[in-house]
């Protein structure tokens, strides 16, 4: 009998990141968009200085705040990258390695930029 070696797939990693980002955006996405994109710019519901520099700097320097910001940005990106990559086929683009590199590569780039910025902000 011919010995067949199965190549270990990397799909579960991307699937897990997609799932984690999907869950996080489902739980907190709408309220986050409301807070950062509507309530604060229009100064409704929340105090006008909610996202002032001292507030946001303190939040980003706090270890829990840092973790939250990193998880939100990185996992949202990985979720979207995975979903967009798998939808390319549906709109008639036969995605290959190039498209995969572009989608996941952008998510990876965003993750690294977020990590760098959070480290630059300090503790």
């Amino acid at each position: 009998m011919k010995q067949r070696t199965l190549k270990r797939s990397n799909a579960p990693i991307f699937w897990a990141l997609f799932g984690a980002g999907g869950m996080l955006s489902a739980l907190f996405g709408p309220m986050l968009v409301f807070i950062t994109g509507i309530a604060v710019p229009l100064a409704v519901v929340l105090p006008a200085d909610t996202m002032s520099y001292p507030h946001m700097l303190a939040f980003a320097q706090n270890i829990i705040g840092k973790g939250f910001i990193f998880a939100i940005i990185a996992l949202f990106l990985w979720h979207a990258a995975h979903r967009i990559f798998h939808s390319l086929h549906d709109i008639g683009i036969h995605a290959g390695t190039g498209a995969k590199l572009l989608c996941y590569g952008l998510a990876m780039l965003g993750t690294l930029i977020a990590a760098y910025a959070l480290l630059a902000i300090g503790f």
Binding site: S25, I69, I72, F76, L77, A80
Partner: peptide, 20 residues
């Protein structure tokens, strides 16, 4: 909806870089 999730994450990422 993933397009909006990606765009929103990009806006937040820009904000984070500006904060730094």
């Amino acid at each position: 909806t993933a397009l909006f999730v990606a765009a929103y994450a990009a806006i937040l990422l820009t904000g984070l870089v500006r904060l730094s």
